[in-house]
Simulated assay, not measured.
Amino acid sequence: MTGKQRREEIIHILSKQEQPYSGTLLAKQLHVSRQVVVQDIALLRAENRQILSTNKGYLLLAENDTTRVFKVHHTNEQARDEMNLIVDLGGKIEDVFVYHRVYGVLKAPLNIKSRRDVDRYLREIELGNSTLLLNVTAGYHYHTISADDQKTLDLIQEELDKAGFLASLQDYEPVNFWKS
């Protein structure tokens, strides 16, 4: 199998997944090392393939996915309202991340697309005696939101602003969080 064929197979495998798929499993399935998979993922991203890396593996965003990063601010008690607002308007909360001046970007995948997902996520936080990531940065955090079109993202942005959840970027925050 050539490198090009292997990368096409990676896209084929990831396109069937709804949850992150581990690089180790990809490597075993393709009979290559984990490092080869990492290099292939980098090459695919260079071709503008939208592949998210999470702590549980890789996730391929569909070609027609439209995403936008929103910086938001709220309390723990307002988290449910913020997330329900997004999913009710047709958005999918891909992740949550914070930008910490010392630690840099701390990110966790969410994949929340319904009120049921919101309820499940918040219940897991409570049962795990955990706290929301927003607490690391005094309530400020970011979400990558995907939707079917830019119009939906515009509506989500407008409603987040009306609800008082949108926050402004500060001078010390990088504009592109994903470049090293």
Rank of each mutant, 00 (worst) to 15 (best):
V72C: 06
T54K: 07
D65C: 13
E18S: 14
S15D: 10
H73Q: 09
L61T: 09
N55R: 15
K28Y: 06
Q17A: 10
L127P: 08
H12V: 15
L133R: 01
H31A: 10
K56H: 08
V98S: 05
L133C: 05
R123E: 12
L61M: 11
V37L: 02
A79D: 05
T131M: 15
G3L: 05
K179Y: 07
K4D: 12
H141Y: 04
E82L: 11
T75N: 10
Y21S: 00
R115P: 08
A79P: 09
G57C: 03
I51H: 04
N55L: 13
E158M: 08
E94S: 10
Y58N: 03
R7G: 03
V136W: 14
R101G: 11
P174R: 00
Y58A: 06
Y99M: 07
S33E: 02
K71C: 07
R123P: 07
M1K: 11
L89R: 04
R123D: 12
K179A: 15
Q39E: 13
R34L: 07
E63T: 13
H31S: 08
D95Q: 04
Y21I: 00
K113C: 11
N129M: 13
P174D: 00
R80S: 06
N135C: 09
A27Y: 02
S168H: 10
E18Y: 12
N64H: 14
G128S: 04
S15V: 01
Q157Y: 13
M1C: 11
Y140S: 08
V102Q: 09
F165L: 03
P109Y: 09
I86A: 02
Y103W: 12
E82C: 11
Q35E: 12
V175E: 09
D117E: 04
L43Y: 13
L25T: 01
S114Y: 00
L89M: 09
R120Q: 15
S168I: 08
R68P: 05
Q35Y: 09
M83W: 00
L89K: 04
N76Q: 12
K56F: 08
H141D: 04
I86F: 00
A79I: 05
Q78G: 06
S180R: 14
S146F: 01
N64R: 14
V69N: 06
L89S: 07
K28N: 09
I41D: 04
I156T: 03
A147Q: 02
K56M: 08
R68Q: 09
N135S: 12
T2R: 07
H73T: 09
F97T: 06
I145Q: 02
Y121P: 06
E82G: 08
K151H: 15
F177N: 03
H12N: 15
F70P: 02
D149Y: 04
E9L: 12
K16E: 12
V136Q: 15
L106D: 05
E159F: 00
L30T: 01
T66I: 15
R6F: 03
V96H: 07
Y103L: 14
Q5C: 12
Q170P: 01
L60M: 07
E126N: 11
D148C: 14
V98G: 02
A27F: 01
R6Q: 01
V36F: 05
I86Q: 03
A46M: 10
E9N: 12
L60R: 01
Q29G: 01
L30G: 02
V102S: 12
R6D: 00
R49C: 13
